[in-house]
């Protein structure tokens, strides 16, 4: 569980986000929505424990949290397999991988559909594949709370769906996930719980019904957005003039 009470985020003594009250449910797929520059990443950093609230209470009851930032550097000159194996060298005197660890990496590679790329160097992979690789790191890290800043930004629509399916499936294995998502329709389909950060710095959280209303989304994006329900699927359409 993550709890934030009366949180406030300031930059250079200027209030950026105020009155943040969030409690994230356990074992759910939570998605964060909001326009660029509204403060989603700042909020993620607070939740991930990278930075601290300027004011207010924050508590994290997960045993291990991992946060994958939006832009990360990748070591060159190693293969995808070696990249994923990096995570096991966290202990000292670790001169070789055990068979079990190797198998675990193969399992993850297969699960993410990148097993055929395992011997390619990191600079030969596309940026989408690199993002998937980072998700692989999350799965290997044994974290029970995974925070992903725009995990799907470089992925094609099929890979986005594949990734979201995997993440959704993880929530049944005692893992909670928080991600930033810009595709409203996919978000509505996959998310269990939502946080919206509006352009004016208002933070709301709630279930699908609470967040996905035309009124709320229009407020969040400061743009006319129409939410309709077709065959039990929620579709959000920005009005294009």
């Amino acid at each position: 569980m993550i709890n934030i009470k009366n949180g406030q985020i300031c930059f250079n003594k200027q209030v950026f986000l105020d009155n943040i009250n969030i409690s994230l449910p356990k074992n759910k797929f939570t998605l964060m929505l909001g326009p660029n520059g509204s403060g989603k990443t700042s909020l993620l950093n607070i939740i991930g424990g990278v930075t601290k609230l300027s004011k207010g209470l924050f508590s994290n009851s997960f045993t291990k949290t991992i946060l994958i930032p939006q832009n990360t550097s990748y070591p060159q000159d190693i293969t995808l397999f070696e990249y994923l194996s990096s995570i096991y060298y966290d202990s000292n005197w670790k001169w070789s991988l055990s068979k079990k660890e190797e198998n675990e990496i193969y399992f993850i590679l297969n699960k993410l559909n990148i097993a055929d790329k395992k011997d390619l160097l990191m600079n030969q992979l596309s940026s989408g594949e690199l993002q998937i690789a980072n998700t692989g790191l999350c799965l290997l890290s044994k974290a029970d709370f995974i925070i992903l800043d725009e995990p799907g930004s470089n992925l094609d629509i099929i890979n986005q769906i594949m990734l979201l399916d995997i993440l959704k499936q993880l929530t049944t294995q005692n893992i909670s996930i928080l991600g930033v998502m810009h595709d409203l329709n996919l978000a509505a389909k996959y998310g269990d719980y939502f946080i919206s950060v509006s352009r004016k710095g208002k933070v709301c959280s709630g279930s699908q019904e609470e967040i996905f209303s035309s009124q709320n989304l229009t407020d969040v994006y400061n743009y006319n957005i129409n939410v309709v329900e077709v065959n039990n699927e929620i579709l959000a359409h920005p009005k294009i003039k």
């Binding site: 990278v50 949290t65 946060l67 990360t72 070591p75 990096s86 966290d90 000292n92 005197w93 001169w95």
Partner: peptide, 22 residues
């Protein structure tokens, strides 16, 4: 050095990811 060098295989990850994991 022998004891600690393999740790670099972990630290070769992005700083932010590494500090998030450990």
């Amino acid at each position: 050095c022998l004891y600690i060098t393999p740790k670099l295989n972990f630290l070769r990850l992005d700083h932010n990811i590494a500090s998030s994991i450990s």
